[in-house]
Amino acid sequence: MKLLQLFGAGFSMSVRRSVAFRTNLLFDVVLAFTGLGTTIAAVAIVFTRTDTVGGWSKAEFLVLIGTYELITGLRSAFIDPNLSWFPDNGIRNGKLDAYLLQPAPSLFLASLSLSAPLALIQCVLGAGVLSWGIGTAPDKPDLYGVLSWLLLVIAGLVVTWALSVLLACLAFWAPKLQLDVFYHSAWQLGRYPTDVFARPIRFALTYVFPLALIAAVPSSALLNGPNAGQLAAGLLAAAVAAGLAALAWRAGLRRYTGATS
């Protein structure tokens, strides 16, 4: 309850402060628009030459892009402001020390207490593309499809959070290794159905760095109806990832505070 209050307070303060920068707002809106436009244009070009890519139709691609955009927007709004460039922004400037002194769980404070509300524009646009995709799909999703999509998107968000935490935890062992650029590049792969990639990449995206869960799995659940196996795998992956993130954070803090060594 208190964590929710803290989260809400942080968010409302961020809203007030971002309204103060109106030109930045304009830039961000324009770039969110053109970025999404570029993605859709690239896909549209492909579909002038063919009807399906890797077994996915244009409507399915749009649903996938919308879902991806939605989750990416939430990540940029709530997770990135806390965990991106963690060795510099989180540790070297003393933020982590301050969090350790505060009477709330340090993992919550370090990973979710700051937010960037402007990034939510991406979510709005993503929702637009999502409904466009559903609109052009021949079969409309049923209630179970929508519910399992929702559940899998939540699981995808948990996985997203956990991956960011795990990446940030690297800073405790290798503070010079900043993999943000790598992470953001690899993230781009989530925008496409895993079926189009070569087998080794597909394997990595499903089991090692589970970006397939972010958008491809929820999208196929939405359009093709729920699949008990996929649903269970998604929820399990979320639980395991979150558990790993919490463990890694604990181990990292022990190292940071000198409890081991």
Binding site: K2, Q5, L6, A9, S14, G94, L114
Partner: peptide, 22 residues
């Protein structure tokens, strides 16, 4: 490092946040 957190916040916002936190 007397005050951490978001530097765009006002003094009152930061104090309010402390009230919640503590």
């Amino acid at each position: 490092q007397p005050v951490g957190g978001s530097q765009e916040l006002t003094v009152m916002d930061s104090l309010e946040y402390q009230r919640l936190l503590y």
